[in-house]
Design a protein around this nucleic acid. Structure first.
Lengths: 338, 338
DNA sequence: ATGAAAGCGCTAACAC
DNA sequence: GTGTTAGCGCTTTCAT
């Protein structure tokens, strides 16, 4: 950046001059647009390679596409997220798209600003992962830019697509696994977001849990305890819950995050798992798979979620208008905690 | 995106018209540049708020700054990274900068393309976290855009800044802790990157380990085993290493990633920790802190690294030319594994 | 099939 | 202190 000699910056004009063609021709080759002869294309491609030309994305963004997808993560801490990113990249890269990630820091205003930034950046489309944003704001953004949401249940939303694990089914799988072990006294630990929209995965998991309990004639035993995430307070509440004499003998945690905490807290208190307390989580993160944790958990195939969302987004960028809502069947990974 | 009516797009010109001033005046207010009266500023600010105007970042990028920092992560899997991001955001946000993250997928070509994309995007500066890129390519990029590297030791690099934990010291802390427990037979598990530059943190940790062993008169006992990351092969190698009758009784792992694996593998094989095998890791991730893992680990204050890198980057963007190289003292968190 | 030229929305000289 | 205007590098009609 030291010397901004305009002479040495390779632009589309440099390439055009080098190849002896017009800038319009170069632009067409760049976008593999219709209407260029093979000879011209080869010629231009050679110049591009020779000069090491790379298009200025900012300039492109002013008129056309940036070939960039924005990924908004509500929070970076969940070890489940890398799988999703991987899945997205697996589809985006070969299609010539780059993924840029923004982090919402579990905070609605920051998340909002981040989405607006991505729009202002003229990204071609957005994948929102577990957005904290409510269903009242999303459509407004979806009118400005193609959007796909993961971990956000709005099966009737007309303006954007969604990709989700079938969270109800995941909960049902857990209840069934507990019952197969003879449990009836099955509780659930869910997520306490300050406000809640019924678009959160934890809501659907609660639904699935309650439905499965009812179907098993155990509706009267069902109980849900909601805890915050990453708050010192919730640790105390978890401990108190664990110490209560009438606590359930089996517990379905909405996420591995809470399940792992619970598993460790039980160990610290000398409560035997699964004999005195059976536990199952959700997400099947690699922590659940560690032998010392050995947590039964619902696997929701993060890579598949990521791939699906990228496919939908690219199709939407390509022009699809009608919304699509995918539900992916999860499966339960049985380990020693249940 | 549906209707691109030019009429309804709010641009700097719309604001200027609404406020009854020139576009230059609006631009100056936007950048809080010198030379605008308070009255004009207030007037413009009101128009901006009324119209809900947001500057087009792509357009800004063509002439001036984008107020965006690019963060390149070599790989998203390490649970240590969120701390760094948090630290960066804590500095960038208040300064009016947005951070966008790109993932290198532990792959040099992808990492390279990502950096080039960020340059093409006209980001104002880059923070590279544990770049796989060698010292031969970095200066070329640093000539094009302000760069700060974290987890990359080049204390003499003139073109960019670095921020690192004092990895040698971290290793020495571990060796000292093992010796305090009476260990002499102390080995190390390090990282096997295909190629290695002596800029990797694992190299420095090896250095520190060897130096500490030598200083303690234990040079003859020192042994380093290098393993790949996330490869099925390395799991087998780790198991083989663990089964060898002459393996060390204490082992310093270059990262919690390997230390946690080792801890779990030991448990699975019925090897008592720390009696039959003492273990210490590096990074003090939250996994190390789980009671069931209970891993002694070097804490390198990720948030501090993140903050420091963002501060250096902003200063460099503001015009600083001379390189700065920060080393942050780590400390050892003692737990039950050593 | 190819090229000329008009912007996209903003910043930065430069006038006034 | 404020306004005018020439681009930044690209895409995109519209001629040819």
């Amino acid at each position: 950046m030291a010397d901004g000699k305009k002479a040495d910056r390779v632009t589309i004009r440099t390439v055009a001059a080098d190849a002896g063609v017009s800038v319009a021709a170069v632009s067409k080759v760049l976008r593999s647009a219709y209407g260029v002869s093979d000879a011209l294309r080869v010629n231009v491609l050679q110049s591009i390679a020779r000069l090491g030309y790379r298009p200025n994305v900012a300039a492109r963004g002013m008129r056309g596409s940036t070939y960039t997808l924005g990924i908004l993560l509500s929070d970076l801490a969940n070890p489940f997220l890398p799988q999703i990113i991987e899945g997205i990249n697996a589809v985006a890269e070969p299609a010539g798209y780059k993924a840029m990630i923004g982090v919402g820091q579990s905070n609605v205003p920051i998340e909002t600003r981040m989405i607006e930034s991505m729009i202002d950046y003229r990204m071609d489309g957005l994948i929102l992962v577990a957005p904290r944003l409510g269903p009242e704001t999303l459509p407004a953004y979806a009118a400005q830019i193609p959007i796909v949401a993961i971990g956000h249940h709005e099966p009737d939303a007309p303006g954007f697509d969604t990709v989700n694990a079938d969270d109800r089914m995941g909960a049902a799988l857990v209840v069934a696994a507990f019952r197969a072990r003879g449990h009836q006294d099955i509780g659930m630990i869910s997520l306490d977001l300050g406000v809640d929209h019924h678009t959160n995965v934890s809501d659907l998991r609660e639904d699935g849990y309650l439905a499965a309990m009812a179907a098993a004639g155990l509706a009267h035993m069902a109980q849900i305890r909601r805890l915050e995430l990453n708050s010192p307070r919730s640790q105390g509440q978890l401990a108190a819950w664990l110490d209560a004499p009438d606590r359930p003998r089996a517990v379905f945690c909405w996420s591995d995050l809470h399940a792992v905490d619970l598993r460790n807290m039980a160990a610290a208190k000398g409560i035997a798992v699964p004999q005195d307390l059976a536990i199952a989580g959700f997400d099947n993160t690699y922590i659940a798979a560690l032998p010392l944790i050995d947590l039964t958990s619902v696997d929701q195939a993060g890579t598949t979620l990521g791939r699906g969302s990228a496919e939908l987004l690219l199709a939407r960028i390509a022009g699809r208008r009608v919304a699509e809502h995918r539900l992916i069947a999860p499966h339960l990974i049985l380990r020693g905690s249940h």
